[in-house]
Nucleic acid binder design. Structure first.
Length: 555
DNA sequence: AGGGTTTGCCAC
DNA sequence: AAACGTGGCAAACCCT
């Protein structure tokens, strides 16, 4: 059963079971959705314009759903597949195209609005439909059209699966943003204080950074703002050490006492500005824990498929990177555990699976693919890894050149797969992931050396796209499968338990300690389901490294 | 003062 | 060792 749903902006809305004639007006949308979700039998697939408009409010109201069709995410996939990447995807835009009317731009979404904004009662019509349009009818019409377009594709199964798991990704994104990654504000503050000194008044340099800046100035014989690359370049040149830039690997080679100070300064300044006290105040919510402790949650604002390859992005908060220096603050609540599952070497495994290269697949049946590769390449694991990455990224210079020749000989089908994608890109064509996500069309390129450079760059992009985009959909399928498994656990997990963080090839779950085994098992089963769904006949394995940590240990 | 661009770092 | 894919972001820089 599919039920289309739109909100009225006042806490109520309209529902329409597809295939039935009459829409239904409800005064309390969350209650109505919750009731139908809880009814016996297979839960409905909710059809809505865009998860950001409805689902965060449902989650805030304590309602979670199992399945949905996200019209905006699906529209973007279909547009991309048709070579129309980047055209507006909102319900209003899809409806306008369907009726040959002027197509409105997509609404701009503010950072944080999907995360921990205040309850908004399904605020504002973000659909971009013309005023007065019957939004429910428009949604039903666009949904039907999308299903037709999906069915009309030569291989519709792939993109249909992708649309379904990406829609589920929207559900997971709202739930993860709401629940948040457990992060202890007190531990975070202690780590910062140990590294930077006590928290300074706003706008001031922390003590350790101020000391470093002073020592840098002394050793260079002039006052220097270490945050200013041009000042640092000038001062180093004045001290007899001209360098082309202040990048860290350049500074590492400089034989002057200021160099290590500058490197240390840059490292700590980065921590302070990107994940310091201000970041914590903006992105980490706080609530009282047991025994007077403070518990916190990091609430990234996910953008599902926000990257051309289908990877997720975030708006604000640097959500796709918890720096290693701060991992110590990521702690389970007392009595709970964090389960972290990391898909190691995902991209070379994906390449092995999609290319059907037997030798690479054989290596990818091992836990450590690179170690196995090393045996072929001549014993050096690091060199094997460099060669593999060079093949997937299109590196041609430096160490990579001779390795690539070896790779081409040992793994001909894998290399032909990425080489062919690169040729397509260089010739201005588009490529597709395993499930059908399509790379954007390149801009028209000028003749001459500049165009040649751009063509090669486009080739590296499409070369990488076929791997990265397929890896991203592997992760999407895993996330959707895991979400379903966790919802099926019996007894059910308590509110707020489940997947709390997701980044490219890694998920973090937060569950009561007594459910740790069940969570680990759910991850393993989700991996198996993902593999069987995507690559049923491939020997390639996708081992997940799983670790469990309690409130005393970090992930 | 404010907006757009550059630099350099972080993550996968 | 450093130019090889996808991003976010802060501060400096450069312009109006």
């Amino acid at each position: 059963m599919r039920i289309a749903v739109v909100a009225d902006g006042e806490g109520g809305g309209w529902l329409q079971e597809l295939g039935r004639a009459r829409p239904e007006r409800v005064g309390d949308l969350a209650a109505a959705v919750g009731a139908r979700e809880a009814a016996a039998g297979l839960p409905p697939r909710w059809v809505w314009a865009a998860w950001e408009d409805l689902y965060p409010d449902l989650v805030r109201a304590g309602v979670r759903v199992r399945r949905c069709h996200d019209a905006a995410l699906t529209e973007a996939l279909l547009l991309g597949h048709a070579g129309r990447h980047g055209e507006p995807r909102s319900l209003g835009a899809a409806w306008a195209r369907l009726h040959h009317l002027p197509v409105p731009e997509d609404p701009v979404r503010r950072a944080g609005e999907g995360a921990h904004a205040q309850p908004a009662l399904f605020e504002a019509d973000r659909s971009t439909l013309p005023p007065g349009t019957d939004r429910l009818a428009a949604l039903v019409g666009v949904h039907a059209d999308q299903n037709r377009r999906l069915a009309d594709l030569p291989d519709s199964g792939g993109l249909r699966l992708l649309a379904a798991v990406e829609s589920a990704g929207g559900l997971a994104a709202a739930e993860m943003s709401h629940d948040g990654l457990p992060l202890r504000p007190d531990v975070h503050d202690r780590l910062l204080t140990e590294l930077l000194g006590p928290r300074p008044v706003a706008g001031q340099r922390p003590r350790v950074l101020a000391d470093l800046a002073a020592r840098i100035g002394q050793s260079l014989g002039q006052e220097v703002n270490p945050d200013s690359p041009s000042q640092v370049l000038r001062a180093l040149a004045g001290a007899g050490h001209p360098v082309p830039s202040t990048r860290s690997w350049v500074l590492q080679e400089v034989d002057h006492p200021a160099a290590p100070l500058l490197l240390r300064y840059k490292e700590l300044a980065r921590l302070h500005s990107a994940n310091g006290w201000a970041w914590s105040e903006q992105w980490v919510s706080r609530r009282p824990g047991p025994d007077g402790t403070r518990l916190g949650r990091f609430h990234p604002d996910y953008v599902v498929a926000g990257v051309v390859s289908g990877r997720w992005a975030t708006r604000g908060g640097g959500g796709l990177q918890v720096p290693k220096a701060l991992l110590g603050a990521v702690r389970a609540d007392p009595g709970w555990v964090l389960v972290r599952a990391d898909a190691g070497q995902l991209e070379p495994r994906v390449l092995a699976a999609v290319s059907g290269d037997r030798a690479l697949a054989e290596a990818a049946a091992e836990d450590d693919l690179y170690a196995r590769l090393a045996v072929h390449v001549g014993g050096d694991r690091d060199r094997a890894k460099i060669g593999m990455l060079a093949a997937m990224y299109g590196q041609t210079t430096g160490d990579a050149a001779p390795l690539l020749a070896t790779m081409r000989r040992l793994f001909p089908r894998a290399l032909e797969h990425v080489d062919s994608a690169a040729r397509t890109g260089e010739n201005g064509g588009t490529v597709r992931s395993w499930l059908g996500r399509t790379s954007p069309r390149p801009h028209d390129l000028p003749e001459g050396p500049e165009g040649e450079r751009a063509r090669r760059a486009q080739g590296r992009f499409t070369r990488n796209f076929v791997v990265q985009a397929t890896a991203a959909e592997w992760a999407s399928v895993l996330l959707a499968a895991l979400r379903t498994r966790l919802a099926d656990l019996d007894p059910a997990l308590p509110e707020g338990a489940g997947v709390v963080f997701f980044v490219h090839d890694e998920v973090v779950l937060h569950v009561p300690a007594e459910r740790a085994d069940a969570a680990v098992q759910a991850v393993a089963e989700a991996e198996r389901e993902t593999r069987e769904l995507l690559f049923p006949s491939s020997p390639v394995r996708f081992p997940l490294v799983t670790s469990v940590s309690d409130e005393r240990t970090h992930i």
